[in-house]
Nucleic acid binder design. Sequence first.
DNA 1: CTTCAGGTACGATGCAAGTCATACCTGAAG
DNA 2: CTTCAGGTATGACTTGCATCGTACCTGAAG
Lengths: 111, 111
Amino acid sequence: MAGRNLVGPEVDALDLGAVFRALADEHRRSVMTELAADRSDSERGCNSFNLPISKQTQTHHFRVLREAGLIDEIDYGNRKGIRLRRADIEKRFPGLLTLLGSASPGGTAPR
Amino acid sequence: MAGRNLVGPEVDALDLGAVFRALADEHRRSVMTELAADRSDSERGCNSFNLPISKQTQTHHFRVLREAGLIDEIDYGNRKGIRLRRADIEKRFPGLLTLLGSASPGGTAPR
DNA sequence: CTTCAGGTACGATGCAAGTCATACCTGAAG
DNA sequence: CTTCAGGTATGACTTGCATCGTACCTGAAG
């Protein structure tokens, strides 16, 4: 079976407040930074991020990211796929994903 | 007297987490959106934003914005000036201020 | 069928954050 | 001096949120 896409907000309904609230958490931001860095936008598993938190908390965080409209969650029943909504984000909030890359406080020019 | 500038973090020390946490609040984000919209970057008074909250809470919010490195607070003793750190923000997080402009969920083209 | 791993639902807990009340400080104007 | 408006400090309250424990669901492999 192809898996069902769990619902998130439409492109036009994306709220900047929800996005900032979602990105305010360290763990969620690290997930988004990883996703933004991978330009192939391949679907990833939930535990491919090595988050140092319990699985219930991971469920919570991915839900927040989805409800903010940042990722898609594909439900396969006993496992789940994560995909970045790059096109939608770039359309609604251009530059946001680039911003996530310039996170490290040593910045874009380490040398 | 010229007024003393209250201390905030240096440009290189700006933390994206603190910035997102600061912008997660509605009131602080509205202040930042107003500041970002004014390209003259003139110094503004604290009560020129018409925030529907008490003055103690306003003190709190401006402090958070300053500690995140987003604004400067100039202390005149019995009043205070607010100035956007546009250059620093653009240097460290290019595109962030533009992002604040595309906030409204009807977007850049209301009509 | 049973077993097992990945994921969710619900509830409880602990902590951070937004809010305001009271009291106090600061500088300008009478 | 006194008065007054803008701002801050401290403390209390309340809400939101990140976290986890227990229990349950789902699909795949024996």
